[in-house]
Simulated assay, not measured.
Amino acid sequence: YTFGLALALLSAAAAAELPQSSILTRYGVTSDQLPKPPATETAKPIEEKSRFQLQPEQPWVTLRLGDGKQPEKTGNISIDRSMQQELERCQR
């Protein structure tokens, strides 16, 4: 905390010493006395035909939820229920 406070005080003191006026007014120059930038012509960009055929990148993995079929019934209530719960968990 002490180092941060000292740094803040030093930066505040340095900022107080900076002049508040513009550098132009300190030297007696107005902005209209400054030289104008040279006029440049805007050239039309030349469209070049690409040598490469760019196509969108294909995803590495495609996720599908399946065809919507329910799991097969085995006749065992506990197995059927666990398979149904697993299907619901995977769909979430």
Rank of each mutant, 00 (worst) to 15 (best):
Q84T: 15
I23A: 04
E86S: 14
G75T: 01
R81S: 15
K36G: 02
P19N: 09
P37E: 04
I23D: 07
F52A: 11
T30A: 15
I77C: 06
K36T: 02
T40K: 12
L87E: 05
G4N: 06
S50K: 05
G75P: 00
C90I: 14
E17T: 09
V61E: 01
S50Q: 02
S11Q: 02
Q55I: 00
I23H: 08
M83W: 06
R51Q: 09
T40R: 15
L7I: 06
E47F: 05
A6P: 01
S31V: 03
Q53P: 00
Q58G: 00
C90S: 12
P35K: 02
P59Y: 08
P45G: 03
V61Y: 07
L34D: 02
R26M: 04
A43H: 14
T30P: 02
F3S: 12
Q84D: 14
G4C: 09
F3M: 12
Q70W: 15
L34I: 06
A6Y: 12
Q20F: 06
S50W: 03
L24D: 01
S78A: 15
L54G: 04
R51L: 11
K49S: 02
D32E: 10
R89L: 15
I46L: 02
A16F: 13
R92I: 01
F3W: 12
Q20P: 01
Y27L: 00
T62H: 09
P37N: 08
L18F: 13
T62M: 10
S82F: 14
S11D: 02
A12G: 03
Q84R: 12
T2E: 07
